[in-house]
Design a protein around this nucleic acid. Structure first.
Length: 210
DNA sequence: GGATCGATCGGCT
DNA sequence: GCCGATCGATCCG
C-alpha cells in the first residue's frame, strides 16, 4: 500500500482542481504516538480577492495572512466563538485561496476522536455504532474537535510526513461522476458569491455534513 | 423529520 | 458594536 504525502506542487494549482482531487485523500493527525485519520469526503473552495465569502476578500490581515502565502500550509480560524475550521492554502503566493475541509470518513483513531468530541452520547456508544461514526467528523467544526486541531495549527506546513498534520494519497480514486457540487454552506451573506457551486462532496457518502 | 435558536468571542468596522 | 466558512438542544408536528 502506497501512502505518499501530498507535496506542495499538489496544492499549488487551481483551487477547484485541488478540491476535486482532495476527495478520497486521507487526512492524518499525529497526536503523541497515535494516528488519527479520516478520508476527505467534503470540501469547499475559497478563491481570490473577489470571493465575498472568503475572509481574504476583506484584505490581507494578520488572521488571513497565511492565505496569501505559499500553498500547502494550514489556515485555521475560530468561528462563532467556539468552533475551529481547517483549510489548506492553495495556488501561488500572493494569490489568496484555500480549501476548507468540511467532512471526513473516520479511519484510524476512532477512540481518540470519540474522546475529543464533547457530546456525552459518544462516550456510551460502541465504537462501531453507525450513528457514532457518521456524527464524529461530519462538519468542519466537528472534525477539528475530533482531530484536536485549533488555531495553533494556522500557518503550519502540512507537506511533510514528520508534521503533526498532513494528507496522503491512498490510491483511492474518486471519479468525476461520483462528485456532487452545490453552493457553499453558511455563506448566504456573500452576495453574488453565495450561489457559486464551490462545495464538492462524494455523492451519497453518509459522512458529509448536514 | 425539519425549523429555529442560543452559545460565545475574535476580528474587523 | 456587530456578526460569523457551526453545532447541538429544543420545539413543533
Amino acid at each position: 500500500m502506497t501512502k505518499k504525502v501530498l507535496p506542495r506542487s499538489f496544492y499549488t494549482r487551481d483551487t477547484h482542481i485541488v478540491c476535486r482531487e482532495l476527495l478520497g485523500k486521507v487526512l492524518i493527525r499525529k497526536i503523541d504516538n497515535h494516528i488519527v485519520s479520516g478520508r476527505i469526503v467534503e470540501v469547499e473552495a475559497y478563491v481570490g480577492f473577489d470571493d465575498l465569502a472568503s475572509h481574504a476578500s476583506k484584505g490581507r490581515t494578520s488572521r488571513t495572512d497565511v492565505m496569501f502565502g505559499p500553498a500547502g500550509h494550514a489556515y485555521v480560524y475560530l468561528v462563532y466563538g467556539m468552533h475551529h475550521c481547517l483549510n489548506i492554502v492553495t495556488e501561488k503566493e500572493t494569490y489568496p485561496a484555500a480549501v476548507l475541509i468540511r467532512a471526513l470518513e473516520p479511519i484510524e483513531g476512532v477512540k481518540i476522536m470519540t474522546n475529543n468530541r464533547t457530546l456525552s452520547f459518544f462516550q456510551s456508544l460502541p465504537s462501531t455504532h453507525h450513528k457514532l461514526l457518521t456524527n464524529l467528523t461530519s462538519g468542519p467544526g466537528k472534525l477539528c474537535q475530533a482531530l484536536a486541531v485549533d488555531k495553533s495549527f494556522s500557518g503550519k506546513d502540512i507537506t511533510r510526513h514528520d508534521s503533526e498534520l498532513f494528507i496522503v494519497d491512498d490510491d483511492v480514486r474518486i471519479s468525476t461522476s461520483s462528485i456532487t457540487t452545490t453552493p457553499r454552506i453558511g455563506v448566504a451573506y456573500a452576495g453574488a458569491s453565495a450561489t457559486l457551486p464551490w462545495r464538492y462532496f462524494i455523492t451519497n457518502s453518509p459522512f458529509v455534513s448536514r
